[in-house]
Every structure is written in C-alpha cells, then in structure tokens.
C-alpha cells in the first residue's frame, strides 16, 4: 500500500494558491473562491455518493448556510467571516441531523426525491417570505476578519485566503474520516447493505453520520458563498442549484478529497468561458460535458490523475 500523499498535496495546493493569489486578477480570485464554496458542498455530496446516495436537494443546506450567515449579520450585525461560516455550518448541520433520522432510511431514487422535496419546501417558504426579501433575497453585510475590514483592494484576496484555509482543513478532516472504519463502510453500504448489517454495523447510522457531515459542509459552503457574493436569494435552494452540485460531483469523481474542488473549479471555468462566448448556449456546453464525462470518464476527472494504477 503506497503512503498517503493526499495531505502533502493539499498543503502544496494551499501554498501555491495563497502565493499566486496575490498576483492574479480580481475576477479569478472571485472565481476560485466561489469554486471553493461549491467544492465544500460537493465534498459532502462525494461522501454520500460513495454510499451510492445522490441527494437532489443539497441546495437546501447550501441555502440554509447562506441565510444563517446573512441573517446573523442582519439581525445582530455580526460580520466576522469565521463566525458567519461557523453559524452556517452549525445551522445546516443541525437541520441535517434532524432530517437525517428520516432520510437515512431511504435509498436510491427515493433518497434523491425526498431530499429534493425538502429543499423545494424551503424554496417555497423563502419565495413567499417578505421579511427575507421574497424572490429578491437580500444583501449580506460586508464581512470582517477579527474585527478588521481589509482595504478594498485586498477584500477579494482576504476572502480567498480564508476560503482556502477553511477548505484545506475541511478536506483534511474528511480525508481522515474516510480512512476510518466508519468512513470505509461507504462502498460496502453501496454494494451490499444486507452484509453490512450481518457484520454487525448499522448502515442507517453510518448514513446518518455521513448525511450530517455533508449537510454541515454544504452549510459552510453556503455561508462562504454568501460572504463572497454579498447577496443571497431563494434560488440557492432551487432544484437547479442542487443539480449543479450533482453535476460537479459527477464531473469530479469520488476518488479523492481534492477532486470536488478541482471539479468545482473546472465547472466554474467552463461556465465562465461558455457564458462569455455565448450566453444562450452555455447550458448546452455543460450538458454536453456532463454526457461526455458519464460516458468516457465514469469515475470523473479525478481518474485522469490516478492513471492506470486503478486498473
């Protein structure tokens, strides 16, 4: 068994981006930060997908995280970026914990459809809630770091640096989790749940734990997106947002904790480039690339990096 190189690779990527970020144009910083936020959501989806579960409603937690962060600023004037992210993560994790009791009983298409239903419930609520801006949503206060507000020219970079750090820690923790017996149970649950039970493990419990982790990560990503973009609206809970996350998950593959972030970045680039070239056909490009990935790279972009070792 080869030595685990993932932590080192992650650290190298972190350093490279932290350094190069100072010289990159502002719009790329924004692109990377949004990709990191989505990558966090996808990291959670990846954990679920390893069990064979596809959540068509992960936007629920993304949206909860974003609204939790936004409301914290609106109601209490909180603006510290770490506080906001913790709040988003906690709110989403809590909702995930409660809903997990129900959802952990479901598999395959039923899991997907039920998670879709709950996310659409939130969407339906938010769209009609005047106090939270209905369909328009509301603006999020500019965030601060340890009580300081960075100079305008450095805002993007500061947010990126925070995002990188958070994503780095999250990826490391998830990587360690996936190596534990409970984490490794994922593919076993996907393959044969009866056997899992007959080995003395509770598949439902394992899925519940994974579901909460995925929800917390999505909440974290949502809060990060809220502080980066500066605006939130109910669209964040709509099914097309969930579809986008699943899209990235499939694009990335479940091979490694780096994959979701890579996938999110590639997605962001495709989206930006395709949208720039032709605003009315970028979805076609996305759909086409999804088809290509499903047919030719069933294990996602990550399989390109693993090369022939996997075979």
């Amino acid at each position: 068994m080869s030595r685990d190189r993932t932590p080192r690779t992650l650290a190298l990527i972190l350093l490279a981006l932290l350094v190069s970020g100072q010289f990159l144009p502002q719009w790329t910083l924004f692109l990377v930060t949004v990709a990191l936020a989505k990558g966090l959501v996808v990291l959670g989806l990846m954990i679920l997908l390893r069990c064979g579960l596809v959540s068509f409603g992960q936007a629920l937690y993304y949206c909860i995280g974003a609204y939790a962060a936004g409301m914290l600023g609106r109601l209490f004037g909180a603006s510290d970026v770490f506080t906001l992210m913790l709040a988003g993560m906690a709110a989403a994790g809590l909702v995930g914990f409660v809903l997990g009791f129900l959802l952990a009983r479901y598999r395959s298409i039923f899991f997907g459809l039920l998670s879709l239903a709950v996310s659409m419930i939130l969407y339906g609520l938010l769209v009609k809630t005047e106090a939270l801006g209905s369909t328009d949503g509301f603006h999020v206060l500019p965030s601060t770091l340890f009580g300081l507000r960075p100079a305008d020219a450095w805002v993007r970079y500061t947010v990126l640096a925070v995002a990188l750090l958070v994503a780095f820690i999250a990826a490391l923790l998830v990587h360690r989790y996936l190596g534990t017996p409970l984490g490794r149970l994922a593919s076993a649950i996907k393959d044969n749940e009866i056997r899992v039970e007959y080995m003395g493990a509770s598949a439902r419990h394992a899925i519940h734990v994974k579901y909460v982790i995925a929800a917390a990560l999505a909440g974290l990503g949502g809060a990060l997106a809220a502080t980066t973009v500066g605006h939130i609206d109910p669209e964040m809970a709509y099914w097309t947002t969930s579809g986008e996350f699943i899209f990235i998950t499939i694009l990335a593959g479940t091979g490694n904790v780096i994959a979701p972030f890579l996938g999110a970045l590639v997605f962001g680039v495709i989206q930006t480039v395709a949208f720039g070239i032709s605003p009315n056909t970028w979805q076609m490009v996305l759909g086409g690339s999804l088809l290509v990935v499903i047919v030719f790279l069933p294990n996602g972009l990550w399989s390109l990096f693993r090369g022939r070792k996997a075979a």
Partner: peptide, 26 residues
C-alpha cells in the same frame, strides 16, 4: 453476499473495520 466492487482483501478489511469499530478502536 459480498461487496461486489471491492477486492477479496478489501471485503475482509471492511468486515474487520466493523469489528474494530464495535470494539471502539481505530
């Protein structure tokens, strides 16, 4: 009743993992 996508060795490791976990180890 096997874990079809895993190797024989990994099948065993999953089982052992459960034993470890139930014993509060690893």
């Amino acid at each position: 009743q096997l874990y079809a996508s895993l190797t024989a060795f990994e099948n065993m490791l999953v089982g052992i993992g459960v034993v470890l976990r139930n014993a509060g180890r690893g």
